[in-house]
Design a binder for these strands. Structure first.
Lengths: 241, 241
DNA sequence: CGAGATTTTGAATTGGGTCAAGTTATGTGG
DNA sequence: CCACATAACTTGACCCAATTCAAAATCTCG
């Protein structure tokens, strides 16, 4: 993805970090880029299992995943918990907390990761000055709403194997967007976590993997996935009842 | 809900329409209120079954429900459809479309309704001028994300009767917020629509209603609901497996 | 290498779906 | 205002996809 050469941009935290979701689509002046750089000076490292934020934490910042990946999950009073998403490099995380100034879910690193902190006050102030940034922030929030509604469709009306197919195709698409292989990748999450996300038990997820392998749609070796028949998976997804 | 007397506010479309979600929490100067009034001059009437927008429509405006109620639903390629929400008076609708400038779902009136159109360009421009409005718009979007994640939890980890209990309690709470009875109300939606929303078949919804009635938690007469034992419903919701 | 965690697979169970029939609302035209 | 047609809802009987329980296999990593 070639970018316009810009001394500010190339030096900026932003250029590496907020790339995909925050800055890339924007056409900004050098002056604006300079301001944007000031936004995100704070980088933090996380090891697998570390919390980026927890349920109930005070909201101050959004976070841009610079490298690595996270899962977000909500906790119900009775101890039930549900994975609401898996976030990877370039994605923005923490949008849920704006509504109440308290984080409504928790975010856990699934591998060693680096995160850019984006103080929300600054982001709002900047987006008042830069309309294209404002619009882009709105688009990011709206995209999260659309994504969540897609998962509602999945949870509300798909069968186990359709859900897993949708999940694999989604991962494939996202890896591909990031310049990685669309057909070979490592899962960062356990069967249990996939199950939680898809509203299934881990045994059901495992069985669905095995079944796809028997159908010659994929090769699975625990967390190593190779998609053999991508259109086939797509068909399996669309083939309702 | 007493409001500061303001010649602009009292005359405004906004005062009646965007009250709950858009303006009420804001502390604005008369000058700001005047600007806000200019935002939402367009009101439109809808009859039961009318579309507010359809899948694929160009996005121009958000909509504030002035009176009545709507359902939103997404359509999958294969014809599957899923109700993603029921919106009532005071709620803002259409946030999904910001991400792509195309509506990703459709909104249908569940009864005769009146809607205020909020041209999004104007809303953005105004929220650059009024930081508290900006923040509030962000909160509205974030709240939608949190709401959707709550439904993901419901769909992913609750049993049929827990889902219906959660649904009834949510309605109860929202009616109550609007100054209506928390324990007696009319459903505006069919069993089929409730089922779609909750990821259940209509027969299952019907059975769950009957079961709640046998348990003396509610009285149901088709679409007339009376909640007899509100704490009991709450218990049923929390009582996991 | 070994211990604990994760994954796979099998067998039995069950909650919700499916199909079908009957009942109750709702709305329309006479 | 009633009769009728159609839509919406309820209930029962049966079935099946996914869960539960259990055990074995495999992986991970100190």
């Amino acid at each position: 993805m070639p970018q316009p050469a810009s001394i500010y941009h190339s030096k900026s935290v932003c250029s590496s970090c907020n790339l995909a979701e925050l800055c890339l689509p924007l056409d900004l002046s050098n002056n604006e880029l300079l301001k944007l750089d000031e936004l995100s000076m704070l980088k933090r490292d996380f090891s697998r299992g570390d919390y980026l934020y927890r349920n109930g934490d005070k909201f101050r910042s959004l976070f841009a995943i610079h490298s690595g990946s996270f899962k977000t999950q909500i906790l119900h009073e009775d101890g039930r918990e549900q994975v609401t998403g898996f976030q990877m490099t370039g994605e923005i995380i923490g949008l849920d907390a704006i509504s109440t100034d308290i984080h409504a879910c928790e975010a856990v690193a699934m591998e060693n990761s680096v995160v850019c902190e984006l103080p929300f006050n600054k982001l709002e102030s900047l987006s008042r000055q830069i309309p294209s940034l404002q619009r882009h922030l709105h688009k990011i929030m709206s995209r999260e709403i659309v994504r969540d509604q897609g998962i509602m469709l999945l949870l509300g009306s798909m069968r186990a194997e359709e859900r897993l197919a949708a999940f694999l195709l989604n991962l494939s698409q996202r890896f591909s967007t990031r310049g990685l292989s669309a057909t070979q990748f490592q899962l960062r999450m356990s069967r249990q976590e996939i199950g939680s996300y898809l509203g299934l038990k881990l045994e059901t997820v495992s069985r669905a993997f095995s079944h796809f392998q028997n159908e010659r749609l994929i090769n699975v070796k625990v967390r190593t996935i190779e998609i053999i028949d991508l259109p086939g998976l797509q068909t399996c997804l669309n083939a309702s009842r």
